[in-house]
Design a protein around this nucleic acid. Structure first.
Lengths: 357, 357
DNA sequence: CTGAAAGCGCTAACAT
DNA sequence: ATGTTAGCGCTTTCAG
């Protein structure tokens, strides 16, 4: 048990192989030509001593830690695990580790994490920020983010989900069209009074989705009634409350779109609790297509968002910026697609998603 | 944009404050008494220059990186996100970051990650291993794990979920009693032919749960029929297949316990698809109490496992071993508790979990 | 109480 | 092609 072994370093290898330490370094990194004979000797010594490079020391020297940080509002919220997984997979393929941080929606924590990260010489940050674009200090924060740097070099920062600024790279989803599609689906069903349970409008994501809803109504010349719009906070519980409130308003709604699946599902519970039928009385749509959407009864029609793509793409963007800090910033916009289930179509097949959870 | 600023180091602070660098280090770390006057001067210089310690350099010197690795079979499987969250929270409170690794159930990857971790001078590892205790090389792997070390010092390793060896610390759940409780619940309902959809028995977890099922039957003098036992692979899809197979065997089962919630839910789908009723024809229990258990229709009776406690406790165990490498190894066993829902009791309230996802 | 100096383990000029 | 050596930025003896 627990014995202190003296660590074997590059110089031990050098000694055993009877070469200089730089030669060892060179064969290990392939940074310079080394004769086959020495190469052989070195590798043998490495094997024999069971030598492993010290990445901390290498990091100090090279300024690269091969670690990126991923900061998200929540680790447990169903949207993020698949995203984290895809980031991890992409990162590992390139030899990077990921440091995960959940901010619980606290901008305070977010900033604290970023600050610490700078000291850690992290190679890059993938950030799904929980900061409020309408905040008065927004400009300052954006400025801060876009000039982040450790060790004198800028830290590549990729925004996830919301494009904070044109000075920052981002992978986003076409939320506007996503919610427009969902709403139009409801319209195509002949629904006349369509409520909207909004995602917080202080975030750009929330704004875009709301715009999608409004646009759909406008395009189809349907009246816009502010009474039909109510704002939740992403959680199923808030969706539940919002729907209860909407029902109380007595507007005889016959459909509801929601800013995410969680709120849609919460709303469904409220509808069911009120003794109403879905979709008979009220049809419901969500957004994101997280796995619970297929599990609830009735299953939820929603907009499928390619979370796997997002992670992969975000990591690629990170690599791109790492290799070319001066490259012009891009906002990569991914598209969602409508998935019809029984919350809008009673005849839809209701297969449970039996794979991803 | 992207300007290269020269990093400010401890010597810059020293110069500005007109003291030696060791004095700066001393005030920053409180490692030695420094006169109030100098302390003041140093802090002022730190502020002025916006100095931040370089954790990589400190790491190289001190051998501590303040980062722990968490290795789990899956990031997306519903059981793990809450666990990861609780670990993260506990770790952050103590100034640690967590590096997350999902192995996709591949022991190969697991080993590779651990190997890399050694080079990274990680301070500790929390591991939910996917290794097969019945494997012939089991002994070697355990030996390997219990002698892990970086930089000549042992790396604290805490096992999550399954206690791999008495030479290793672990936070586990009383799976035996958990499944015994679930099975006895079914028995108390008067069910006579209780099937068991097992978790892989090559893992200690799977063995304990199966033992729980068998023990319950034995205690109540019920016959044990191997035909009633079938093994899945944790996924809902496997639960679905297992139940289809069970149904095909024509044993007229009137209840089924499963080794986890996912398989239970998959099995429910198969039962429903076969035109049978739950719990009328077949009552079903799961294990873990992940949030989907409350969402499906009917909602799933299951054993609640305290994932939050697990994470917190695991981190505490890590700290304990870090501070006392020679401490005797402990296996901390947490208890689950029965949560009755409508898959066994039609009158149970079926509130959806509207909080944790 | 304060400072000078020796590395932590490695990489990359620079010399040979 | 190989070796020598100077640091990366910090902590920590060890003198003063």
């Amino acid at each position: 048990m627990a014995k202190k072994t003296k660590p074997v370093g590059i110089k031990d290898v050098a000694k055993l192989a009877n070469v200089s330490i730089s030669t060892v370094s060179n064969v290990l990194n392939g940074s310079k030509m080394v004769s086959a004979g020495l190469q052989e000797r070195v590798m043998q010594a490495v094997d024999e001593l069971n030598y492993e490079v010290n990445l901390v020391a290498r990091g100090l020297k090279s300024g690269k830690t091969n670690t990126i940080a991923v900061i998200v509002p929540s680790i447990t919220s169903v949207f993020f695990p698949p995203l984290l997984k895809s980031i991890q997979d992409a990162a590992n393929r390139e030899g990077y580790s990921i440091n995960v941080f959940g901010t619980s929606g606290s901008l305070e924590k977010e900033k604290k994490y970023i600050q610490t990260l700078k000291s850690q010489w992290i190679d890059g940050i993938l950030l799904s920020s929980c900061f409020d674009t309408s905040d008065s200090s927004a400009g300052k924060y954006i400025e801060y983010l876009s000039t982040l740097n450790t060790n004198g070099t800028p830290i590549p920062l990729i925004c996830l989900e919301s494009a904070i600024s044109s000075n920052l790279d981002a992978v986003i989803v076409d939320d506007m069209n996503g919610l427009k599609t969902a709403t139009e689906h409801l319209i195509s069903l002949g629904r006349k009074t369509i409520a909207y349970i909004a995602a917080p409008s202080s975030f750009s994501m929330g704004k875009s989705r709301r715009d999608g809803y409004l646009t759909a109504l406008a395009v189809h010349q349907m009246p816009i009634n502010p009474q039909l719009i109510i704002e939740g906070d992403y959680t199923p519980a808030s969706g539940y409350q919002c729907m209860k409130e909407l029902l109380k308003r007595g507007l005889s709604i016959d459909a509801a779109a929601a800013g995410n699946d969680q709120m849609a599902i919460g709303a469904m519970r409220a509808i069911l609790d009120a003794g109403l039928e879905i979709p008979g009385d009220i049809a419901v749509t969500g957004y994101n297509d997280n796995f619970p959407a297929s599990l609830v009864q009735p299953s939820l029609t929603t907009i499928h968002v390619p979370k796997e793509d997002m992670g992969k793409t975000a990591f690629e963007l990170f690599l791109r910026r790492l290799n070319d800090p001066e490259a012009s910033h891009i906002h990569l916009c991914l598209n969602g697609s409508l998935v019809v289930r029984s919350s809008t179509d009673p005849d839809a097949k209701t297969d449970w998603n039996l794979q991803d959870w």
